[in-house]
Design a protein around this nucleic acid. Sequence first.
DNA 1: CATGAATGAGACTTCATTCAT
DNA 2: GATGAATGAAGTCTCATTCAT
Lengths: 208, 208, 208, 208
Amino acid sequence: MLNLMEEDRHMSEKQKRIVQAAIELFAEKGFAGTSTSEIAKKAGVAEGTIFRHYKTKKDLLMALTMPTLIGGVIPFFAANFSEEVLEQDYPDFRTLVQNIIENRYEFTEKNGKLIKIYFLELFYHDELRQQFSEIFMTHVKGKFDRVINYYKERGELADMPNSTIMRALITNIVGFLLTRFVVMPDAAWDDQAEIEYTVDYILHGLVR
Amino acid sequence: MLNLMEEDRHMSEKQKRIVQAAIELFAEKGFAGTSTSEIAKKAGVAEGTIFRHYKTKKDLLMALTMPTLIGGVIPFFAANFSEEVLEQDYPDFRTLVQNIIENRYEFTEKNGKLIKIYFLELFYHDELRQQFSEIFMTHVKGKFDRVINYYKERGELADMPNSTIMRALITNIVGFLLTRFVVMPDAAWDDQAEIEYTVDYILHGLVR
Amino acid sequence: MLNLMEEDRHMSEKQKRIVQAAIELFAEKGFAGTSTSEIAKKAGVAEGTIFRHYKTKKDLLMALTMPTLIGGVIPFFAANFSEEVLEQDYPDFRTLVQNIIENRYEFTEKNGKLIKIYFLELFYHDELRQQFSEIFMTHVKGKFDRVINYYKERGELADMPNSTIMRALITNIVGFLLTRFVVMPDAAWDDQAEIEYTVDYILHGLVR
Amino acid sequence: MLNLMEEDRHMSEKQKRIVQAAIELFAEKGFAGTSTSEIAKKAGVAEGTIFRHYKTKKDLLMALTMPTLIGGVIPFFAANFSEEVLEQDYPDFRTLVQNIIENRYEFTEKNGKLIKIYFLELFYHDELRQQFSEIFMTHVKGKFDRVINYYKERGELADMPNSTIMRALITNIVGFLLTRFVVMPDAAWDDQAEIEYTVDYILHGLVR
DNA sequence: CATGAATGAGACTTCATTCAT
DNA sequence: GATGAATGAAGTCTCATTCAT
């Protein structure tokens, strides 16, 4: 689940270097702001080599970001949100939220640059957005709903629309991870405490 | 405060059209993904005309985004966070949060595209980030701290580090506005209710 | 004779500033390497103003260089090479050469930049070259020949073709002045001595 | 020594055509007056191809002119001005001068355009001038001085400052070659005779 | 007379992509 | 598979010149 690049094994040494260089440059300067020649230079390969592996520059972007989506968004929900798992592993909502955050924390730590790339390109490419939307709707939304309903029925959740709750959850988790790994990656973070606080105010808000 | 372009008056008709075209295109395709010839065509001017007003394409970006920062971030805090205003206008923390959201809601509604541009380019340009950081530190951070301390002393806020509270507030407000105006601007929103819910869970969390 | 700009009097203040700026910039960066906007800025006038006085950039060049040719090359020969003047004022060839050098020295000192411009543009513009050639052939060559023949008949000159003698004279005079005012204008020159030496070796060569 | 382009061998066919086209156009219209698209068209390559070989237009200029300096100025002096060579090969000053002229004559004949380009751009680019100055001072000046002193001690040379003698020599040689190959390349020259005359008046002046 | 905004052609340069080696 | 020279379209920007004010 954590390794986005299952094809790593099928990749030649050079191809791996291309992918790595592309990730670093796209994350730093954006897709449109990065030239294939830069990628080639950083990867230490000839310009032509890139196009031997990826027909176009955009193909390269897709080859990077698709697994980020597929491997980052779906698996977690797929694996964890069956009713049995909920009852067994997540006795209450807090445990669930905590688990999501910690799990996504690791994922983001490992794939920060890819996530940054994916997140930002989402704003520019309709196709990415549609793709994302589709995956979200078919693979995530339903499960999410079921989970929220599950805890609602148990009386744990406030009486808000599911969509609002979902947005709140996603906003706060993404917001935390983005701040942690993209906006201020170099600050001195006490991660364990910060996660604790974050879970806290997601559950109980800022007011006492 | 809401009008980012105070210089509008000093702008020629063509210059205004250039600015408008640039805002639309940068918002849609990103700075790096937009060409000056596209801007010129959309604005209905000769390409050279752009460079008569802005020495470089980047200058144009800066001319757009600077006021977004200056006019969008500072004024609110400057105007609203003096001690007298707090006591007089914000009897409790909820009123304050509600006011911030509503106020920034209007601002975002009016300047959505500019904010999108600014927000996204922040990830790519060190200079923008530094600029932002500086403004934030000198004009916002201190006031924010004072406000948080003010309500902490009154026993309204949870016992978390100021920085965490600040991050939570900003994350949720930005997250809400981004979702509302950038990510899903076309969805059917019941804005009044959604604001209410957002304030609610910022204050009291998702759990009951 | 020395004042190339007889029209100075008919020139408006701004026009004079344009001319002066053009001279300085053309001399420094060449005609093709100088833009009209640079000239306008240096002259402190609007770009359009230049074209009010000179239909094209090239017209401006011509307006500068023509008088340099007309006022620099012809007058000297015209005024000094009549037979009577020769007998009366130039008892021997040395006096003549010395006088030419000293006279052109002053002229070059006053009009160094214009001469540099003219000299260099000669290499690029056929028209200038033709013009020069024509003037030289009609106004100078004949007189020069007469002078050389005059001193040849008096047995003062070596038995070389007139063209060779002419070339030698021009080469050395131009070479001296170019070195003095264009190539090394900032060196510490003992001008009087250097002129003396130059005349010396033009007449008697380097060998003893 | 005569072949400025030792790298010719390392050059692709297209690169050679670029260089050749550039030389011809720069010589005809000057560096600033020549566009890269002209060069490309004349060379029969795509414009982009030029920039694959030379990062900037100026780089192209430098790539042409540097070897002209290095290969044109230094080698002659380096090879010919050791004391032994002087005694052995140049029994008197005339032989030396004659040899220099003839040698540089061949060089100029072969590289006339490059020399024209280099000579003229010297007037516009500080860097070229500095470069030239440095090379001249470190590689040429000293040797020249030694040679002049050598013949002075043998009583062959007039009692003038070395710098004056040097200037006289250079002026006359350059003046001759420039007239011959740049100013009037199409005139009917009796080269052998003209060289003879030139050596003559350099040594003995124009007067008898 | 003077201005300076506006122009569009064309400058230099970069780009993604192709293809012969 | 890998290379890198070559391409031409497209990019950013500058230019000489015009013209309404």
